[in-house]
Design a protein around this nucleic acid. Structure first.
Lengths: 288, 288
DNA sequence: TTACAGATATACGTTTAACGTATGAGCAGA
DNA sequence: TCTGCTCATACGTTAAACGTATATCTGTAA
Protein backbone atom coordinates (compact mmCIF):
# COMPACT_ATOMS: atom_id res chain seq x y z
CA UNK A 1 0.00 0.00 0.00
CA UNK A 2 2.65 2.49 1.02
CA UNK A 3 4.99 0.84 -1.41
CA UNK A 4 2.47 1.30 -4.17
CA UNK A 5 2.09 4.97 -3.37
CA UNK A 6 5.83 5.50 -3.38
CA UNK A 7 6.18 3.69 -6.67
CA UNK A 8 3.41 5.73 -8.24
CA UNK A 9 5.04 8.93 -7.08
CA UNK A 10 8.37 7.79 -8.48
CA UNK A 11 7.12 6.58 -11.83
CA UNK A 12 4.65 9.38 -12.30
CA UNK A 13 1.88 7.11 -13.50
CA UNK A 14 -0.29 4.51 -11.87
CA UNK A 15 -0.04 2.11 -14.78
CA UNK A 16 3.75 2.07 -14.78
CA UNK A 17 3.88 1.56 -11.03
CA UNK A 18 1.41 -1.29 -11.32
CA UNK A 19 3.56 -2.95 -13.96
CA UNK A 20 6.61 -2.56 -11.73
CA UNK A 21 4.91 -4.17 -8.81
CA UNK A 22 3.21 -6.91 -10.79
CA UNK A 23 -0.25 -5.57 -10.04
CA UNK A 24 -3.10 -4.71 -12.27
CA UNK A 25 -3.63 -1.03 -12.94
CA UNK A 26 -6.97 -1.29 -11.20
CA UNK A 27 -5.42 -2.57 -7.99
CA UNK A 28 -2.80 0.14 -7.90
CA UNK A 29 -5.42 2.77 -8.48
CA UNK A 30 -7.56 1.37 -5.72
CA UNK A 31 -4.66 1.10 -3.29
CA UNK A 32 -3.89 4.73 -3.84
CA UNK A 33 -7.51 5.72 -3.27
CA UNK A 34 -7.65 3.57 -0.15
CA UNK A 35 -4.53 5.16 1.25
CA UNK A 36 -5.88 8.63 0.59
CA UNK A 37 -9.14 7.77 2.25
CA UNK A 38 -7.37 6.20 5.20
CA UNK A 39 -5.22 9.26 5.73
CA UNK A 40 -8.08 11.59 4.95
CA UNK A 41 -5.99 13.63 2.55
CA UNK A 42 -5.54 13.86 -1.18
CA UNK A 43 -2.02 12.76 -1.96
CA UNK A 44 -1.97 12.93 -5.72
CA UNK A 45 -4.00 15.12 -8.04
CA UNK A 46 -4.81 13.08 -11.08
CA UNK A 47 -5.72 14.06 -14.54
CA UNK A 48 -5.97 11.32 -17.09
CA UNK A 49 -2.50 11.95 -18.36
CA UNK A 50 -0.44 13.53 -15.63
CA UNK A 51 -0.12 12.99 -11.91
CA UNK A 52 1.27 15.48 -9.47
CA UNK A 53 1.89 15.23 -5.77
CA UNK A 54 -0.08 17.48 -3.49
CA UNK A 55 1.61 19.25 -0.63
CA UNK A 56 0.54 16.45 1.67
CA UNK A 57 1.71 13.98 -0.92
CA UNK A 58 5.21 15.42 -0.83
CA UNK A 59 5.58 14.98 2.90
CA UNK A 60 3.86 11.64 2.72
CA UNK A 61 6.35 10.47 0.14
CA UNK A 62 9.42 11.21 2.22
CA UNK A 63 7.85 9.85 5.38
CA UNK A 64 6.63 6.75 3.62
CA UNK A 65 10.09 6.07 2.24
CA UNK A 66 11.55 6.22 5.70
CA UNK A 67 8.84 3.99 7.07
CA UNK A 68 9.39 1.41 4.36
CA UNK A 69 13.13 1.50 4.89
CA UNK A 70 12.56 0.99 8.60
CA UNK A 71 10.36 -1.96 7.89
CA UNK A 72 12.91 -3.47 5.53
CA UNK A 73 15.59 -3.07 8.11
CA UNK A 74 13.34 -4.52 10.77
CA UNK A 75 12.51 -7.61 8.79
CA UNK A 76 16.05 -8.08 7.68
CA UNK A 77 17.75 -7.94 11.03
CA UNK A 78 16.47 -11.38 11.84
CA UNK A 79 17.60 -12.90 8.60
CA UNK A 80 20.30 -15.46 8.95
CA UNK A 81 23.69 -13.84 8.51
CA UNK A 82 24.68 -16.64 6.19
CA UNK A 83 21.76 -15.93 3.91
CA UNK A 84 22.74 -14.41 0.63
CA UNK A 85 21.99 -10.79 -0.03
CA UNK A 86 19.27 -9.87 -2.46
CA UNK A 87 17.08 -6.99 -3.38
CA UNK A 88 17.37 -3.74 -5.29
CA UNK A 89 20.08 -1.17 -4.64
CA UNK A 90 19.73 2.14 -6.41
CA UNK A 91 22.77 4.33 -6.19
CA UNK A 92 23.73 7.76 -7.49
CA UNK A 93 27.46 8.37 -8.04
CA UNK A 94 29.58 11.08 -9.64
CA UNK A 95 30.06 10.42 -13.33
CA UNK A 96 33.83 10.01 -13.50
CA UNK A 97 34.04 8.03 -10.29
CA UNK A 98 31.06 5.96 -11.30
CA UNK A 99 32.66 5.04 -14.58
CA UNK A 100 35.89 3.81 -13.04
CA UNK A 101 36.90 2.64 -9.60
CA UNK A 102 33.52 2.99 -7.94
CA UNK A 103 32.01 1.03 -10.80
CA UNK A 104 34.61 -1.69 -10.40
CA UNK A 105 33.71 -1.97 -6.76
CA UNK A 106 29.99 -2.00 -7.45
CA UNK A 107 30.31 -4.67 -10.10
CA UNK A 108 32.49 -6.77 -7.82
CA UNK A 109 29.86 -6.44 -5.13
CA UNK A 110 27.15 -7.49 -7.52
CA UNK A 111 29.21 -10.50 -8.59
CA UNK A 112 29.73 -11.50 -5.01
CA UNK A 113 26.00 -11.22 -4.35
CA UNK A 114 24.13 -12.28 -7.47
CA UNK A 115 20.78 -11.64 -5.83
CA UNK A 116 21.48 -7.93 -5.74
CA UNK A 117 20.01 -5.83 -8.50
CA UNK A 118 22.09 -2.70 -8.96
CA UNK A 119 20.68 0.48 -10.42
CA UNK A 120 23.71 2.63 -11.00
CA UNK A 121 22.89 6.26 -11.78
CA UNK A 122 25.68 8.69 -12.69
CA UNK A 123 25.06 12.32 -11.98
CA UNK A 124 27.41 15.07 -10.89
CA UNK A 125 24.89 17.77 -10.08
CA UNK A 126 23.26 17.94 -6.69
CA UNK A 127 20.03 15.98 -6.62
CA UNK A 128 16.99 16.04 -4.45
CA UNK A 129 17.86 12.74 -2.96
CA UNK A 130 14.54 12.04 -1.30
CA UNK A 131 12.75 12.47 -4.61
CA UNK A 132 14.87 9.99 -6.46
CA UNK A 133 14.00 6.87 -4.56
CA UNK A 134 17.67 6.00 -4.28
CA UNK A 135 19.26 4.08 -1.46
CA UNK A 136 22.63 5.77 -1.57
CA UNK A 137 24.23 8.92 -2.90
CA UNK A 138 27.97 8.96 -3.40
CA UNK A 139 29.30 12.44 -3.75
CA UNK A 140 32.65 14.15 -3.89
CA UNK A 141 32.73 17.03 -1.47
CA UNK A 142 29.88 18.42 0.60
CA UNK A 143 26.44 16.85 0.54
CA UNK A 144 23.95 19.70 0.23
CA UNK A 145 21.13 18.04 2.12
CA UNK A 146 21.13 18.11 5.88
CA UNK A 147 18.30 15.62 6.20
CA UNK A 148 20.67 12.85 5.20
CA UNK A 149 23.24 10.91 7.11
CA UNK A 150 26.66 11.53 5.62
CA UNK A 151 29.51 9.09 6.05
CA UNK A 152 32.96 9.83 4.62
CA UNK A 153 34.25 6.97 2.53
CA UNK A 154 37.67 8.16 1.56
CA UNK A 155 39.71 11.22 0.69
CA UNK A 156 40.94 12.07 -2.75
CA UNK A 157 44.57 13.05 -3.19
CA UNK A 158 44.94 15.59 -5.96
CA UNK A 159 48.19 16.02 -7.88
CA UNK A 160 49.50 18.54 -10.35
CA UNK A 161 50.29 16.53 -13.45
CA UNK A 162 51.26 17.00 -17.05
CA UNK A 163 52.57 14.97 -19.93
CA UNK A 164 56.34 14.54 -19.89
CA UNK A 165 58.06 17.27 -21.83
CA UNK A 166 55.93 20.13 -20.66
CA UNK A 167 58.35 20.64 -17.82
CA UNK A 168 61.42 18.67 -16.81
CA UNK A 169 60.82 16.28 -13.95
CA UNK A 170 62.18 17.71 -10.74
CA UNK A 171 61.76 16.23 -7.30
CA UNK A 172 62.41 19.60 -5.68
CA UNK A 173 60.11 21.59 -7.94
CA UNK A 174 58.47 24.69 -6.55
CA UNK A 175 54.91 25.83 -7.29
CA UNK A 176 56.11 28.94 -9.07
CA UNK A 177 57.12 26.91 -12.10
CA UNK A 178 53.42 26.63 -12.96
CA UNK A 179 52.63 30.29 -13.39
CA UNK A 180 53.68 30.51 -17.02
CA UNK A 181 52.25 27.17 -18.05
CA UNK A 182 48.76 26.64 -19.49
CA UNK A 183 46.33 25.20 -16.98
CA UNK A 184 43.68 22.63 -17.91
CA UNK A 185 40.85 23.24 -15.49
CA UNK A 186 37.77 21.33 -14.48
CA UNK A 187 34.90 23.79 -14.56
CA UNK A 188 33.50 25.35 -12.57
CA UNK A 189 36.90 26.65 -11.60
CA UNK A 190 36.61 29.75 -9.52
CA UNK A 191 39.08 32.31 -8.28
CA UNK A 192 41.78 31.52 -10.79
CA UNK A 193 44.13 30.35 -8.09
CA UNK A 194 45.25 26.93 -6.98
CA UNK A 195 45.96 26.56 -3.26
CA UNK A 196 48.81 24.15 -2.70
CA UNK A 197 50.18 22.73 0.49
CA UNK A 198 53.38 20.88 1.25
CA UNK A 199 53.70 17.92 3.55
CA UNK A 200 55.17 20.12 6.25
CA UNK A 201 52.07 22.29 6.18
CA UNK A 202 53.40 25.15 4.13
CA UNK A 203 50.70 26.74 2.02
CA UNK A 204 51.17 28.53 -1.27
CA UNK A 205 48.68 30.01 -3.75
CA UNK A 206 49.49 29.72 -7.43
CA UNK A 207 47.81 31.81 -10.13
CA UNK A 208 46.46 29.61 -12.91
CA UNK A 209 46.59 30.62 -16.55
CA UNK A 210 43.59 28.66 -17.74
CA UNK A 211 43.85 27.77 -21.41
CA UNK A 212 41.27 25.03 -21.46
CA UNK A 213 38.39 24.11 -19.24
CA UNK A 214 35.77 21.40 -19.35
CA UNK A 215 33.08 20.05 -17.13
CA UNK A 216 34.25 16.53 -17.98
CA UNK A 217 37.25 15.31 -16.06
CA UNK A 218 38.09 12.73 -18.71
CA UNK A 219 38.40 15.51 -21.26
CA UNK A 220 40.77 17.34 -18.92
CA UNK A 221 42.83 14.22 -18.47
CA UNK A 222 43.02 13.60 -22.19
CA UNK A 223 44.07 17.17 -22.79
CA UNK A 224 46.80 16.75 -20.23
CA UNK A 225 47.94 13.52 -21.87
CA UNK A 226 48.24 15.33 -25.17
CA UNK A 227 50.60 17.83 -23.61
CA UNK A 228 48.26 20.82 -23.69
CA UNK A 229 49.23 21.91 -20.19
CA UNK A 230 49.11 20.88 -16.58
CA UNK A 231 46.04 19.83 -14.65
CA UNK A 232 44.93 19.15 -11.10
CA UNK A 233 43.68 15.59 -11.10
CA UNK A 234 42.78 13.01 -8.47
CA UNK A 235 45.15 10.14 -8.03
CA UNK A 236 42.54 7.45 -8.66
CA UNK A 237 41.98 8.83 -12.14
CA UNK A 238 45.62 8.84 -13.21
CA UNK A 239 47.28 6.11 -11.19
CA UNK A 240 47.98 4.04 -14.26
CA UNK A 241 49.29 6.95 -16.30
CA UNK A 242 51.66 7.92 -13.51
CA UNK A 243 53.01 4.41 -13.43
CA UNK A 244 53.37 4.25 -17.18
CA UNK A 245 54.98 7.64 -17.25
CA UNK A 246 52.50 9.15 -19.65
CA UNK A 247 51.73 11.69 -16.95
CA UNK A 248 54.17 12.93 -14.38
CA UNK A 249 53.77 14.49 -10.99
CA UNK A 250 55.06 18.02 -11.54
CA UNK A 251 55.25 18.96 -7.88
CA UNK A 252 55.91 15.78 -5.87
CA UNK A 253 56.14 17.75 -2.65
CA UNK A 254 52.92 19.69 -3.18
CA UNK A 255 49.29 18.73 -3.28
CA UNK A 256 46.05 20.52 -4.07
CA UNK A 257 43.50 20.32 -1.25
CA UNK A 258 42.15 16.84 -0.96
CA UNK A 259 38.45 16.22 -1.35
CA UNK A 260 36.27 13.87 0.57
CA UNK A 261 34.18 11.15 -1.02
CA UNK A 262 31.00 10.98 0.99
CA UNK A 263 28.21 8.49 1.14
CA UNK A 264 24.80 9.86 2.04
CA UNK A 265 21.63 7.97 2.80
CA UNK A 266 18.24 8.52 4.38
CA UNK A 267 18.13 8.31 8.15
CA UNK A 268 16.12 5.14 8.51
CA UNK A 269 16.24 3.57 11.91
CA UNK A 270 17.93 0.47 10.64
CA UNK A 271 19.53 0.38 7.27
CA UNK A 272 19.22 -2.72 5.17
CA UNK A 273 22.00 -5.25 5.35
CA UNK A 274 22.72 -4.95 1.66
CA UNK A 275 23.25 -1.21 1.98
CA UNK A 276 25.39 -1.65 5.05
CA UNK A 277 27.58 -4.22 3.36
CA UNK A 278 27.77 -2.22 0.15
CA UNK A 279 28.95 0.79 2.10
CA UNK A 280 31.61 -1.29 3.77
CA UNK A 281 32.77 -2.72 0.45
CA UNK A 282 32.88 0.71 -1.16
CA UNK A 283 34.72 2.18 1.78
CA UNK A 284 37.33 -0.58 1.70
CA UNK A 285 37.75 -0.30 -2.05
CA UNK A 286 38.23 3.44 -2.05
CA UNK A 287 40.65 3.44 0.83
CA UNK A 288 42.72 0.57 -0.48
CA UNK B 1 0.40 -8.52 12.99
CA UNK B 2 3.16 -6.59 14.71
CA UNK B 3 0.56 -5.17 17.02
CA UNK B 4 -0.58 -8.65 17.90
CA UNK B 5 2.94 -9.73 18.70
CA UNK B 6 3.52 -6.72 20.91
CA UNK B 7 0.26 -7.31 22.71
CA UNK B 8 1.08 -10.96 23.26
CA UNK B 9 4.46 -10.02 24.68
CA UNK B 10 2.87 -7.48 26.98
CA UNK B 11 0.04 -9.63 28.22
CA UNK B 12 2.10 -12.76 28.47
CA UNK B 13 -0.57 -14.97 26.90
CA UNK B 14 -1.99 -15.31 23.44
CA UNK B 15 -5.54 -15.64 24.65
CA UNK B 16 -5.47 -12.42 26.63
CA UNK B 17 -3.93 -10.52 23.74
CA UNK B 18 -6.59 -11.89 21.41
CA UNK B 19 -9.32 -10.73 23.77
CA UNK B 20 -7.73 -7.29 23.93
CA UNK B 21 -7.61 -6.98 20.19
CA UNK B 22 -11.00 -8.47 19.52
CA UNK B 23 -9.59 -11.48 17.76
CA UNK B 24 -10.12 -15.15 18.25
CA UNK B 25 -7.35 -16.99 20.04
CA UNK B 26 -6.76 -18.98 16.87
CA UNK B 27 -6.11 -15.87 14.82
CA UNK B 28 -3.69 -14.41 17.32
CA UNK B 29 -1.82 -17.67 17.49
CA UNK B 30 -1.64 -17.85 13.72
CA UNK B 31 -0.51 -14.25 13.38
CA UNK B 32 2.32 -14.93 15.76
CA UNK B 33 3.35 -18.04 13.85
CA UNK B 34 3.15 -16.17 10.57
CA UNK B 35 5.35 -13.38 11.89
CA UNK B 36 7.90 -15.85 13.16
CA UNK B 37 7.94 -17.64 9.84
CA UNK B 38 8.22 -14.39 7.96
CA UNK B 39 11.15 -13.25 10.04
CA UNK B 40 12.63 -16.71 10.10
CA UNK B 41 13.17 -16.61 13.83
CA UNK B 42 11.43 -17.92 16.91
CA UNK B 43 10.19 -14.94 18.86
CA UNK B 44 8.36 -16.61 21.70
CA UNK B 45 8.93 -19.99 23.26
CA UNK B 46 5.57 -21.40 24.18
CA UNK B 47 4.57 -23.98 26.63
CA UNK B 48 0.90 -24.52 27.13
CA UNK B 49 0.81 -22.31 30.16
CA UNK B 50 3.64 -19.84 29.96
CA UNK B 51 5.19 -17.76 27.23
CA UNK B 52 8.64 -16.25 27.26
CA UNK B 53 10.41 -14.04 24.78
CA UNK B 54 13.46 -15.41 23.05
CA UNK B 55 16.53 -13.25 22.60
CA UNK B 56 15.32 -12.31 19.14
CA UNK B 57 11.89 -11.68 20.58
CA UNK B 58 13.29 -9.11 22.98
CA UNK B 59 14.88 -7.04 20.28
CA UNK B 60 11.89 -7.58 18.04
CA UNK B 61 9.63 -6.22 20.75
CA UNK B 62 11.45 -2.95 21.16
CA UNK B 63 11.89 -2.50 17.42
CA UNK B 64 8.29 -3.37 16.73
CA UNK B 65 7.10 -0.81 19.27
CA UNK B 66 9.12 1.87 17.55
CA UNK B 67 7.84 0.82 14.17
CA UNK B 68 4.24 0.91 15.34
CA UNK B 69 4.74 4.29 16.94
CA UNK B 70 6.22 5.55 13.72
CA UNK B 71 3.25 4.28 11.80
CA UNK B 72 0.82 5.88 14.24
CA UNK B 73 2.61 9.16 13.90
CA UNK B 74 2.67 8.83 10.16
CA UNK B 75 -1.01 8.19 9.83
CA UNK B 76 -1.88 10.86 12.34
CA UNK B 77 0.06 13.70 10.83
CA UNK B 78 -2.52 14.01 8.08
CA UNK B 79 -5.46 13.99 10.43
CA UNK B 80 -7.41 17.20 10.58
CA UNK B 81 -6.12 19.38 13.38
CA UNK B 82 -9.69 19.99 14.47
CA UNK B 83 -10.34 16.32 14.95
CA UNK B 84 -10.66 15.27 18.52
CA UNK B 85 -7.95 13.26 20.15
CA UNK B 86 -8.47 9.65 20.95
CA UNK B 87 -6.54 6.53 21.70
CA UNK B 88 -4.67 5.00 24.59
CA UNK B 89 -2.03 6.82 26.59
CA UNK B 90 -0.06 4.77 29.10
CA UNK B 91 2.06 6.81 31.44
CA UNK B 92 4.39 6.08 34.32
CA UNK B 93 4.80 8.82 36.92
CA UNK B 94 6.42 9.15 40.35
CA UNK B 95 4.03 8.16 43.10
CA UNK B 96 3.74 11.41 45.03
CA UNK B 97 3.65 13.56 41.93
CA UNK B 98 1.22 11.20 40.27
CA UNK B 99 -1.16 11.39 43.20
CA UNK B 100 -1.30 15.17 43.22
CA UNK B 101 -0.55 17.86 40.70
CA UNK B 102 0.45 15.61 37.82
CA UNK B 103 -2.73 13.65 38.36
CA UNK B 104 -4.78 16.83 38.31
CA UNK B 105 -3.23 17.72 35.00
CA UNK B 106 -3.75 14.28 33.54
CA UNK B 107 -7.37 14.17 34.61
CA UNK B 108 -7.97 17.63 33.19
CA UNK B 109 -6.44 16.47 29.94
CA UNK B 110 -8.64 13.43 29.85
CA UNK B 111 -11.71 15.59 30.51
CA UNK B 112 -10.76 17.89 27.68
CA UNK B 113 -10.33 14.91 25.35
CA UNK B 114 -12.89 12.28 26.27
CA UNK B 115 -11.65 9.97 23.54
CA UNK B 116 -8.37 9.52 25.37
CA UNK B 117 -7.99 6.45 27.53
CA UNK B 118 -5.44 7.09 30.25
CA UNK B 119 -3.50 4.33 31.93
CA UNK B 120 -1.80 6.02 34.84
CA UNK B 121 0.91 3.93 36.47
CA UNK B 122 2.66 5.17 39.61
CA UNK B 123 6.16 3.90 40.24
CA UNK B 124 9.17 5.58 41.80
CA UNK B 125 11.80 3.01 40.98
CA UNK B 126 13.59 3.04 37.66
CA UNK B 127 11.80 0.91 35.13
CA UNK B 128 12.82 -0.76 31.93
CA UNK B 129 10.74 1.58 29.91
CA UNK B 130 10.83 -0.30 26.66
CA UNK B 131 9.46 -3.39 28.35
CA UNK B 132 6.47 -1.67 29.84
CA UNK B 133 4.68 -0.67 26.68
CA UNK B 134 4.24 2.84 28.03
CA UNK B 135 4.07 5.98 25.96
CA UNK B 136 5.61 8.30 28.51
CA UNK B 137 7.73 8.17 31.63
CA UNK B 138 7.67 11.11 33.98
CA UNK B 139 10.55 11.09 36.36
CA UNK B 140 12.10 13.38 38.92
CA UNK B 141 15.80 13.67 38.32
CA UNK B 142 17.93 11.75 35.87
CA UNK B 143 16.42 9.25 33.49
CA UNK B 144 18.63 6.16 33.60
CA UNK B 145 18.01 5.05 30.02
CA UNK B 146 19.96 6.66 27.25
CA UNK B 147 17.88 5.12 24.51
CA UNK B 148 15.05 7.50 25.35
CA UNK B 149 14.43 11.10 24.47
CA UNK B 150 14.36 13.20 27.62
CA UNK B 151 12.56 16.50 27.79
CA UNK B 152 12.65 18.62 30.94
CA UNK B 153 9.17 19.62 32.02
CA UNK B 154 9.86 21.79 35.02
CA UNK B 155 12.14 22.26 37.97
CA UNK B 156 11.21 21.57 41.55
CA UNK B 157 11.99 24.19 44.16
CA UNK B 158 12.85 22.56 47.47
CA UNK B 159 12.40 24.37 50.78
CA UNK B 160 13.42 23.70 54.35
CA UNK B 161 10.15 23.60 56.27
CA UNK B 162 8.84 22.72 59.66
CA UNK B 163 5.71 23.18 61.70
CA UNK B 164 5.50 26.51 63.48
CA UNK B 165 6.97 26.33 66.95
CA UNK B 166 9.94 24.21 66.08
CA UNK B 167 11.88 27.37 65.44
CA UNK B 168 10.79 30.99 65.47
CA UNK B 169 10.11 32.43 62.05
CA UNK B 170 13.01 34.58 60.96
CA UNK B 171 13.44 36.16 57.53
CA UNK B 172 17.18 36.43 58.02
CA UNK B 173 17.65 32.92 59.34
CA UNK B 174 20.98 31.23 58.69
CA UNK B 175 21.46 27.52 57.85
CA UNK B 176 23.33 26.90 61.07
CA UNK B 177 20.11 27.02 63.04
CA UNK B 178 19.28 23.56 61.67
CA UNK B 179 22.21 21.65 63.07
CA UNK B 180 20.63 20.92 66.43
CA UNK B 181 17.18 20.18 65.06
CA UNK B 182 15.87 16.76 64.12
CA UNK B 183 15.77 16.19 60.38
CA UNK B 184 12.97 14.27 58.65
CA UNK B 185 14.58 12.75 55.60
CA UNK B 186 13.29 11.10 52.47
CA UNK B 187 15.27 7.94 52.03
CA UNK B 188 17.57 7.14 50.42
CA UNK B 189 19.30 10.08 52.03
CA UNK B 190 23.02 9.84 51.59
CA UNK B 191 25.95 11.75 53.00
CA UNK B 192 24.13 13.20 55.95
CA UNK B 193 24.55 16.74 54.68
CA UNK B 194 22.16 19.12 53.01
CA UNK B 195 23.72 21.45 50.46
CA UNK B 196 22.01 24.83 50.52
CA UNK B 197 22.42 27.79 48.28
CA UNK B 198 21.33 31.37 48.63
CA UNK B 199 19.91 33.51 45.87
CA UNK B 200 23.23 35.29 45.52
CA UNK B 201 24.95 32.01 44.82
CA UNK B 202 26.45 31.44 48.23
CA UNK B 203 26.69 27.75 49.04
CA UNK B 204 26.62 26.18 52.47
CA UNK B 205 26.57 22.57 53.64
CA UNK B 206 24.56 21.72 56.70
CA UNK B 207 24.93 18.54 58.70
CA UNK B 208 21.60 16.81 59.20
CA UNK B 209 20.69 15.03 62.42
CA UNK B 210 18.28 12.52 60.95
CA UNK B 211 15.69 11.39 63.48
CA UNK B 212 13.21 9.99 61.03
CA UNK B 213 13.38 8.77 57.49
CA UNK B 214 10.86 7.26 55.12
CA UNK B 215 10.70 6.32 51.50
CA UNK B 216 7.26 7.97 51.32
CA UNK B 217 7.27 11.71 50.94
CA UNK B 218 3.74 12.02 52.32
CA UNK B 219 4.92 10.39 55.52
CA UNK B 220 7.76 12.87 55.74
CA UNK B 221 5.36 15.72 55.20
CA UNK B 222 2.98 14.46 57.84
CA UNK B 223 5.83 14.05 60.29
CA UNK B 224 6.85 17.63 59.63
CA UNK B 225 3.27 18.80 60.16
CA UNK B 226 3.22 17.08 63.52
CA UNK B 227 6.25 19.05 64.62
CA UNK B 228 8.72 16.19 64.65
CA UNK B 229 11.43 18.21 62.98
CA UNK B 230 12.33 19.97 59.76
CA UNK B 231 12.25 18.51 56.29
CA UNK B 232 13.37 19.29 52.78
CA UNK B 233 10.23 19.26 50.68
CA UNK B 234 9.27 20.38 47.18
CA UNK B 235 7.09 23.43 46.92
CA UNK B 236 4.34 21.69 44.95
CA UNK B 237 3.80 19.30 47.85
CA UNK B 238 3.42 21.92 50.54
CA UNK B 239 2.12 25.02 48.76
CA UNK B 240 -1.17 24.88 50.63
CA UNK B 241 0.40 24.27 54.02
CA UNK B 242 2.72 27.22 53.57
CA UNK B 243 -0.24 29.42 52.77
CA UNK B 244 -2.23 28.15 55.74
CA UNK B 245 0.75 28.50 58.00
CA UNK B 246 0.78 24.89 59.10
CA UNK B 247 4.27 24.69 57.71
CA UNK B 248 6.72 27.53 57.54
CA UNK B 249 9.73 28.23 55.43
CA UNK B 250 12.57 28.07 57.94
CA UNK B 251 15.23 29.54 55.66
CA UNK B 252 13.49 31.89 53.23
CA UNK B 253 16.80 32.92 51.73
CA UNK B 254 18.10 29.40 51.24
CA UNK B 255 17.07 26.53 49.03
CA UNK B 256 18.08 22.91 48.64
CA UNK B 257 19.21 22.01 45.13
CA UNK B 258 16.27 21.99 42.79
CA UNK B 259 15.41 18.84 40.90
CA UNK B 260 14.23 18.50 37.34
CA UNK B 261 11.02 16.81 36.33
CA UNK B 262 11.75 15.03 33.11
CA UNK B 263 9.55 13.44 30.51
CA UNK B 264 11.05 10.53 28.62
CA UNK B 265 9.68 8.69 25.63
CA UNK B 266 10.80 6.34 22.92
CA UNK B 267 12.51 7.95 19.96
CA UNK B 268 9.88 7.32 17.32
CA UNK B 269 10.28 9.37 14.24
CA UNK B 270 7.03 11.18 14.75
CA UNK B 271 5.29 11.11 18.08
CA UNK B 272 1.54 10.83 18.18
CA UNK B 273 -0.45 14.01 18.48
CA UNK B 274 -2.02 12.91 21.72
CA UNK B 275 1.39 12.41 23.30
CA UNK B 276 2.65 15.70 21.96
CA UNK B 277 -0.34 17.58 23.31
CA UNK B 278 -0.23 15.76 26.62
CA UNK B 279 3.40 16.73 27.03
CA UNK B 280 2.54 20.33 26.32
CA UNK B 281 -0.31 20.29 28.81
CA UNK B 282 1.86 18.69 31.47
CA UNK B 283 4.67 21.10 30.86
CA UNK B 284 2.35 24.08 31.14
CA UNK B 285 0.72 22.74 34.27
CA UNK B 286 3.98 22.06 36.07
CA UNK B 287 5.54 25.37 35.19
CA UNK B 288 2.45 27.39 36.10
C1' DT C 1 -4.44 -39.10 41.99
C1' DT C 2 -7.99 -37.04 39.67
C1' DA C 3 -10.69 -33.44 37.81
C1' DC C 4 -10.94 -28.96 36.13
C1' DA C 5 -9.80 -24.52 34.30
C1' DG C 6 -7.34 -22.30 31.08
C1' DA C 7 -3.66 -22.37 27.81
C1' DT C 8 -1.88 -23.35 22.68
C1' DA C 9 -2.00 -25.42 17.96
C1' DT C 10 -4.40 -27.34 14.15
C1' DA C 11 -8.29 -28.48 10.99
C1' DC C 12 -12.08 -26.91 8.45
C1' DG C 13 -15.80 -24.15 6.73
C1' DT C 14 -17.03 -19.29 6.19
C1' DT C 15 -16.52 -14.51 5.63
C1' DT C 16 -14.12 -10.76 4.02
C1' DA C 17 -10.80 -8.36 1.60
C1' DA C 18 -7.94 -7.99 -2.41
C1' DC C 19 -7.25 -8.91 -7.06
C1' DG C 20 -7.85 -9.08 -12.23
C1' DT C 21 -10.66 -8.40 -16.34
C1' DA C 22 -13.49 -5.59 -18.69
C1' DT C 23 -15.32 -1.16 -19.74
C1' DG C 24 -16.06 3.80 -20.27
C1' DA C 25 -14.21 8.38 -20.31
C1' DG C 26 -10.50 11.84 -20.83
C1' DC C 27 -6.40 13.87 -22.74
C1' DA C 28 -2.16 14.28 -25.91
C1' DG C 29 -0.08 13.82 -30.26
C1' DA C 30 -0.18 12.35 -35.05
C1' DT D 1 -10.26 13.01 -36.30
C1' DC D 2 -8.08 9.03 -34.95
C1' DT D 3 -4.91 6.44 -32.16
C1' DG D 4 -2.65 5.30 -28.05
C1' DC D 5 -2.26 5.85 -23.54
C1' DT D 6 -4.08 7.17 -19.23
C1' DC D 7 -7.35 6.72 -14.91
C1' DA D 8 -11.68 5.21 -12.46
C1' DT D 9 -15.44 2.10 -11.72
C1' DA D 10 -18.16 -2.20 -11.89
C1' DC D 11 -18.25 -7.02 -11.41
C1' DG D 12 -16.99 -11.76 -10.93
C1' DT D 13 -13.18 -14.46 -9.05
C1' DT D 14 -9.46 -15.70 -6.17
C1' DA D 15 -6.95 -15.74 -2.10
C1' DA D 16 -6.21 -14.46 2.45
C1' DA D 17 -7.86 -13.93 7.00
C1' DC D 18 -11.10 -15.10 10.36
C1' DG D 19 -13.97 -17.85 13.75
C1' DT D 20 -15.66 -22.27 15.51
C1' DA D 21 -14.59 -26.53 16.98
C1' DT D 22 -11.29 -29.80 18.64
C1' DA D 23 -7.23 -32.17 20.52
C1' DT D 24 -3.50 -31.66 23.67
C1' DC D 25 -0.94 -30.00 27.44
C1' DT D 26 -0.21 -28.05 32.21
C1' DG D 27 -0.78 -26.02 36.75
C1' DT D 28 -4.00 -25.97 40.60
C1' DA D 29 -7.28 -27.57 43.70
C1' DA D 30 -10.19 -31.16 45.36
Amino acid sequence: MLETFVRIAERGTISAAARDLGLSQASASRQLSDLEQRLGVDLITRTTHALSLTKAGETCLTEARLLLADWDGFAEQFADEAESLSGPLKIVAPIALGQTIALDCAVAFQNAHPGIVLDWILEDRPIRFSETGCDLWIRIGDVPDDTLIVQPLSTVERLIVAAPGLLPEDAQAEPERLVDQPCLALSPFEGGRIPLSAQDGTVRDVAAKVSFSSNDIFAVKRAALSGAGYAVLPRWLIAQELEEGSLIDLLPDWRAPSLTINAAYAPSRRQTRRLRLFLKAMSDALKG
